[in-house]
Design a binder for these strands. Structure first.
Lengths: 339, 339
DNA sequence: AGTTGGCGTGAAACCGATTTCGTTATTTAA
DNA sequence: TTAAATAACGAAATCGGTTTCACGCCAACT
């Protein structure tokens, strides 16, 4: 039933074939770079195709080859995680790399509740050639997809490492160590940390880095200086107030992300103390806020676009039949005023 | 050529038909809600389908019907605009609405240079049923797509209004008026503004709102208090310094977005003055930074998710053959400390 | 001279869902 | 009771590429 008119008239192989005086099979061969076609004919086909403004019909190709040229980019979370610029940038990195390879990114934002939630179901359905997960809450679902043969790349280290999920991540541990060492190395005697959500590997690793820095610099690790946060501003602020009340002599705080670092600073100011004079602060991410806040936030920069790009490249590798190894991207300390 | 193994085995109409003892045609009718099928048979089909875990093959359907069930979401800009959380949220709003209608969002981030850039070309190609533009730099390209029959919705008011492009936007003019009135109404005598990029309609409208507020409250409009910005932090900061040097008695500034408002505040502080005691500041957007900055930024909140949702709904309407009218979403003043 | 082996090519089958068209079976109208 | 209309359904064509298969041809071997 013709609900709407066709948006455009497409030219088909049949027309090209007619114009170039060859068969559709030959058109296909030429247009797919099969070089065992007589070069004169090939030239004729190419010319006819360009004259007619040929555009390949992806649906037809997908039906025929079983490959869609589309990758799902899945955010296993509520839509508002996209309010964190981090994911937008990752997305851009993915999209850019895939687009170069003529692969489209299909965005799906929704909780992956169970193994037969609509999205999981859809992903198995074969309408995409693979899936890149930006955030994963139900790791079990991802495993089951992998087991079913779907090419999968996840961003962020999986909890269950023995599984053979392909992933890319930032070197959270080393980054956190860098941050903490900077604080300890610039004269701080008592450095606390506000962790991220430690049910996520990123949260754990950044805490591990904090501990490692203490160990490597000969400082004793004091559990009382660790406050367990959840990546959010408000929570970090509350925790910091509590921390400062209990340990008034804290003179440095490593917050596991920038948003929390801002919360930390807000708390410090509220207590009538100064950053960095009384308490130095280091964050993690180097997002826009770190740059625009006053005082500027000293933080750990991660290569966010690179993270997306790496994920996309791993996906491409899988699609080629390779089995890429996990990639861990380096970090870098960015000095501003807060520490 | 079997490059890789099929990700999954799909069940087809043929299998359902066999199991239910009907023809493929009948299966199609039942699964598409055609009610003139014997109800016993219909039941049998539905049961067979669910037992076999049937999942429709979108490529096959697209090839057959000419509709792909996919909408392109286009960002006509460099990938790093996605570092602005604004677009991420819009994206989420779009995606959510479309997903409910079983339509997928295909993300394309790339400059639309000319009418035959790869993306424009692709959009005409018929592999998507329509396109939603988040940012538009080459409006001409969009026009030409519309003319070619592609359903299009753009976010933000087009410059060339006489064209019949469907769009959705925030009420920038009224929002800016609200902001300026708040400053004027709470005792400020000399309120300046840093505009956005006034080659964009949002930039113009927010400036118009600023003027309208002056007029409606009986204040004279002073062109010397208008600094033409470009939405960016650094630029706003520079302009503010210049503004304050020239007019030391400025006691209020309306910045056309939050990022610039932070730049404005940074400049004010740098000049040794206080917010809001010496100079009150109001922004526009109510993004995360407005909330986390100290002092908290008084700003105009726009319904960003709603903007995306509205765009998606307009697109759905177009696909149904309707011709939706432009939607303008209301704004709201959010009071914090800066004014 | 008579195979054998490629090579270049086109005819036709195929992917899976949709839809037209025609055939039967069943009503309704005359 | 018969003709006409209607309903329910299946066979087959269709969408546009891709790929198998077989055929004709010429070069390279015994």
């Amino acid at each position: 039933m013709p609900v709407t008119s066709p948006t455009t008239f497409r030219t088909t192989y049949a027309e090209i074939a007619a114009k170039a005086g060859v068969s559709r099979a030959t058109v296909s061969r030429v247009l797919n770079g099969d070089d065992r076609v007589n070069s004169d004919r090939a030239k004729a086909v190419i010319e006819a195709a360009s004259k007619l403004g040929y555009r390949t019909n992806r649906a037809a190709r997908a039906l025929s080859t079983g490959r869609t040229g589309q990758i799902a980019v899945v955010i296993d979370d509520s839509p508002n995680v996209l309010s964190d610029p981090f994911w937008g940038v990752v997305l851009a990195g993915i999209s850019r790399v895939l687009m170069v390879h003529d692969i489209h990114s299909v965005l799906m934002v929704s909780q992956l509740e169970s193994e037969d939630s609509p999205i999981a179901n859809y992903l198995e359905g074969g309408d995409v050639d693979g899936a890149i997960f930006l955030t994963v809450h139900k790791e079990q679902v991802v495993h089951s997809l992998v087991k079913k043969g779907l090419p999968v790349v996840v961003i962020g280290t999986p909890i269950d490492l023995k599984s053979d999920i392909v992933y890319v991540d930032t070197d959270n541990r080393l980054g956190a160590e860098l941050a903490t060492k900077h604080l300890l190395g610039s004269g701080c005697k008592k450095v606390a940390t506000i962790t991220g959500d430690i049910s996520a590997v990123a949260g754990i690793d950044r805490l591990e880095g904090y501990k490692a820095a203490h160990k490597s610099l000969g400082h004793e690790f004091n559990p009382d200086l660790v406050a367990y946060g959840d990546w959010s501003f408000e929570n970090a602020k509350t925790l910091t107030l509590r921390l400062l009340a209990r340990n008034p002599d804290i003179d440095g705080i490593f917050a596991a992300n920038d948003t929390m670092a801002l919360g930390v600073m807000a708390a410090i100011i509220e207590r009538g103390r100064m950053v960095p004079d009384h308490v130095a602060v280091v964050g993690f991410d180097d997002n826009l806020m770190a740059q625009t806040h006053r005082p500027g936030l000293t933080t750990i920069r991660q290569d966010i676009v690179g993270l997306g790009a790496a994920a996309a490249e791993s996906m491409l590798a899988i699609l080629q039949g390779e089995t890429p190894v996990p990639k861990i991207l380096p970090t870098e300390l960015v000095l501003r005023e807060s520490a």
